[in-house]
């Protein structure tokens, strides 16, 4: 005996349960998507600000005669060297933020962990690691190069603990990227199980 075409209370409960589950899931997803959109705007703004402020600091005279607040602190390095390093760091950091923005742009309601989004996040982590590595390595290398050019045989090298911490943070981001890959696989599995 079949129950074709009949809707008993169990069936109704099941439908209500499924609809409620879908609504709750959809609400949660929409909240994530809204946050992702806001963060995306913040990432694009951050990338643009990073380059603009650095350019401002590099191009404006160091005496502050123009009244613009962006200044380039060159430390013991010649200004041209410090400007070059600052520009490289700014470009790499901006590229990392753009990758983050692109990843956030891939977040969709029914595909929170799209493979393309995960790829962008991995690029973001890679570029951030590169920026952190360059921030740690470039200033001491430039200091050594300047000392060598000046014919000096001894120089002081300084490392900022914060930069080393940033390197550790990027390692965590790589782990998060791996977790995203796994989440994407689980999402795909979940989609193809009825």
């Amino acid at each position: 005996m079949t129950r074709c075409g009949m809707l008993d209370s169990s069936c109704l409960m099941n439908i209500i349960y499924r609809i409620t589950e879908n609504i709750m899931q959809s609400t949660a997803n929409k909240s994530i998507i809204r946050t992702a959109r806001a963060l995306r705007v913040a990432a694009w703004t951050g990338a643009a600000a990073c380059v603009l402020v650095t350019l401002l600091g590099v191009l404006t005279p160091p005496d502050g005669s123009t009244g613009i607040a962006a200044t380039l602190s060159s430390g013991d390095l010649p200004r041209a060297w410090a400007a070059g390093i600052a520009l490289v760091l700014a470009l790499v950091s901006a590229a990392a933020l753009i990758e983050l923005a692109r990843m956030l742009g891939r977040v969709r309601e029914h595909a929170l962990f799209a493979p393309a989004g995960t790829r962008h996040f991995r690029h973001f982590a890679g570029l951030l690691a590169l920026a952190a590595g360059l921030r740690v390595a470039l200033p001491p290398l430039a200091t050594v190069a300047v000392a060598w050019q000046a014919g000096r045989h001894a120089t002081y090298l300084t490392f900022d603990g914060g930069d080393l911490l940033a390197l550790l943070l990027t390692a965590v981001f790589f782990l998060v990227a791996r977790l995203f890959d796994e989440a994407a696989r689980l999402e795909d599995d979940s989609r193809s199980i009825v």
Partner: peptide
């Protein structure tokens, strides 16, 4: 065999 329609089944199961 049960002469049932897919639409009814889908509705009953909730998919």
């Amino acid at each position: 065999l049960r002469k049932a329609r897919s639409r009814d089944l889908a509705r009953y199961v909730g998919i």
